[in-house]
Nucleic acid binder design. Structure first.
Length: 281
DNA sequence: CATGTTTCCTGACAGC
DNA sequence: TGCTGTCAGGAAACAT
């Protein structure tokens, strides 16, 4: 499931392959769920555009285009949801099932959005002024704060009044953007904090430890190409390796890698939550 | 406003 | 073998 490290890996991979290419043609499936913007409007706005850069903002993938004085500035935004894939393929490769969007590029290659479960989204963002950070497309949530850039002080103030569990707060994208279920569990383990603790009751020291753990775990995961837990692959179809470094996620009943105690599972905010009852307090 | 719960989807898997 | 039921979860929509 794509969280910040997986989305970053995909965005960088797509960028490396198609930056500078031009959109010649577009195709979209008839499934309404993945479309934040009607397909006809997306096709009209994007045909002929030159792709300047592809980058990650939060869990969103943002496509920036070369300025065109005759046309309104736009961005194309893709969210991978649970099972979404964005892959660049050479001409002639058969389209797999659950393909919902295809950009046919000038080079002949295709950028495809494939998503079995249809939790992913594609949409157009009309911009008046080019904005570097914000994703304000109606229907797409604002970016919250980038966890890799937030300072210790800002991190503390994000959570210190929240009367909910720290796990739920970490998953709240209007606070921190990009942390999902895997990295919330892994960061809480590394910080030695139980997921059910109320955010507002954490000490400054604990919040500082969590700040460090979130950044460390995300950086390490980016370095390893993300976690391939279900079917995640990057833009070249390669799996990541961070799943080999998981201490708790999906390890219910298995021995804690630090103390040997069986890992426990509970449900918080509707998500499976994994922790060590000895290492985390 | 803040927080909790339900819903959308299909593939994988367990159990019979 | 093939069916049924359960589970996985990001985030919008809805409820409290």
């Amino acid at each position: 499931m794509p969280e910040l490290p997986e989305v970053e890996t995909v965005a960088n991979g797509v960028n490396a392959r198609i930056a500078g290419d031009r959109i010649e043609d577009l195709w979209f499936s008839s499934k309404p769920e993945p479309m934040k913007t009607p397909p006809a409007a997306m096709a009209k706005a994007l045909t002929g555009r030159s792709i300047e850069r592809v980058r990650r903002v939060g869990k969103h993938i943002v496509f920036d285009f070369a300025p065109d004085p005759k046309r309104e500035p736009v961005q194309w935004i893709v969210h991978l949801g649970m099972t979404g894939r964005l892959v660049v393929v050479d001409p002639g490769v058969p389209r797999p099932p659950h393909t919902h969007g295809v950009l046919v590029l000038h080079s002949g290659r295709e950028l495809r959005f494939v998503d079995a479960r249809r939790f992913g989204r594609m949409g157009l963002h009309l911009i008046e002024k080019a904005k570097d950070e914000a994703v304000e497309l109606p229907g797409f949530r604002g970016p919250g704060t980038e966890p890799l850039r937030i300072s210790k002080v800002d991190f503390r103030s994000l959570f210190h009044k929240r009367r909910t569990s720290i796990k739920a707060a970490l998953l709240n994208q209007s606070l921190l953007h990009g942390v999902g279920n895997i990295y919330a569990d892994e960061a809480l383990f590394r910080a030695g904090i139980r997921p059910r603790r109320m955010a507002a009751r954490l000490s400054t020291r604990e919040l500082d430890r969590l700040h460090g753990a979130v950044q460390k775990v995300l950086r390490e995961a980016i370095r390893l190409g993300g976690s391939s837990v279900s079917d995640y692959v990057d833009a070249a179809g390669e799996r990541g390796f961070f799943q080999l470094r998981h201490f708790v996620y999906m390890r219910t009943g298995q021995a804690c890698l630090v103390c040997g105690t069986p890992i426990r599972r509970l449900v918080i905010a509707g998500r499976g939550t994994h922790y060590c009852p000895i290492c985390q307090h």
